[in-house]
Amino acid sequence: MNNPQLNDKGELIHLLTLEGLPAEVIGRILDTAVPFVSVAERDVKKVPLLRGKTVFNLFFENSTRTRTTFEIAAKRLSADVINLNIGVSSTSKGETLLDTIDNLVAMNADMFVVRHGQSGAPHLIARHLSAAGQTGIHVINAGDGRHAHPTQGLLDLFTIRHYKHEFSRLTVAIVGDLLHSRVARSLIHGLTTLGTPEVRAIGPQTLLPAAIESLGVHVFHDMADGLRGADVIVMLRLQSERMKGALLPSAGEFFKHYGLTQDKLALAKPDAIVMHPGPMNRGVEIDSAVADGKHSVILPQVTFGIAVRMAVMSMLASS
């Protein structure tokens, strides 16, 4: 099988999706991220691994947190980082995606971090680069359409492993708007690859993708049933801006049925952790008392996200 993310030695050359990525590779990324966590605790928050490399952040879609964490990760590896705000640059003058890439390659780019509204755009760039023989240039998918957000999936896996140590006995409940969520898709692929026995998708019929059971998850429409006995609860953001048509009666109605409150959290295991990929809508999918409560690991997720992105970048740059 030809996996465009791996070279013939099985090393990671692009990170496009967690789907089909072998468990050993995912495990290696998580292991590599561990020592990077402590880099942030030092006087000089930098290591010289990517010195002299140029990383282009290509964000065709808005994002503050993800772009910032990629920028911090690259800078802590001593790379030079160029942020391109594509919305206001060449593409609005009619340049195609691949022409933009070719121009940046001509500027000696070493790595592209790509967010795009269209599923498959990072894939297209990776294929284009290998067709052009540019094997030394790497692509990281920072979120494409509804398809994948692999570094978010990896930082979620890292967070779960940090608090729960292993996956083989866990029940993980993913709650809310799975339909629009590339985060959920990446996390589900990662969890099943690493052998998580029970992954649950909780949400109204209108916000769950059709045939989501084929990914190996159990579907619950009743939140109380779905949360019972959970070790990990992943709350998703209600992506109102992507909703066309009447998927929901109202945000208030959604919170009543699928918002995480202290009462509902009490149905999960006493040591359950609560995660959220951000940005949070307080009072829509999560109650403030839970978001700021002792089960919440939402801010550690952000910190771990930098270490995980450092691990991915340094593994790519050395393949």
């Binding site: 292991d31 402590s38 290591v47 340094s314 050395s318």
Partner: peptide
């Protein structure tokens, strides 16, 4: 101390599998 992040042969050999945490 784990010197993996500071090695001068990183671009040739890459990161080895088990980088330990400098303490």
């Amino acid at each position: 101390i784990d010197v993996s992040f500071y090695r001068d042969d990183y671009s040739k050999k890459g990161l080895h599998a088990n980088v330990a945490t400098t303490q």
